[in-house]
Amino acid sequence: MNCEKYQKMISDRLDGRLSRRKEKKLDRHLAGCPLCRDYLEAQEIIQREAFKIGEIDYPPEWWPQFEQNLKEKLILEGGLDGLQAVEGNKNKGNKNDSKKANRLVLRPVAVRALSLVLVVATVVTIAFLIIYKEKGRPEELPLAMMLSYEESYLNLNQMLADDEAIASEFVNSLEESIIGDTIQSGSENAIIDFDNNLPANDFKIELNKLQKENHNPEEGV
């Protein structure tokens, strides 16, 4: 007898999704199959006991603390608290403004204090960056930004965007490093003719020359 098929029906019946026609078919089978009756009984016990696992919760007083922690993390993640959100939506004539203003009054002191700290920290950081920029000293990036090459490049590109003189210095410095690295690695065995492949570029010509000198040092003297 194909009990597997009927045991699958038992499972569907327990989940309340067996059609009336199949219900009848299953009942007829169960009447004549002690194995499946036993299976049904076992599954009913599992089902009943499983419901007892169902409900678990922390006491009600635990949840406000959970929410407070989550909220602080969300603000640290860059979310806007009520005040900023109200400001942001003011110009749009948002009808929820008054609701948000009310929430402001109810907001815990800790969150307001945290917001204040964040605002002060942002102002200090901006001031710090401006001072550094004025002095022309090397900028330090936050760790997360340094981890991403593209974010780092974006930042760099923005700094170079408006100043051709600095960009030119920067490119020269890069080219010097590339030449230095090439010579150090010793590529004299296979000279790459940059002129054949690339648009006219002083750096490429210089690199080509350097490679040749490096290939036959005595000729260069």
Partner: peptide
């Protein structure tokens, strides 16, 4: 790779600082 990436990005920023100083002198 992780360490290289960090060092390279940092190196670029330092290079940028040096270029800025040189660029300003040349102006």
């Amino acid at each position: 790779y992780i360490v290289f990436n960090l060092d390279f990005n940092r190196g670029m920023m330092e290079r940028m600082g040096r270029a800025r100083m040189a660029g300003q002198k040349n102006k």
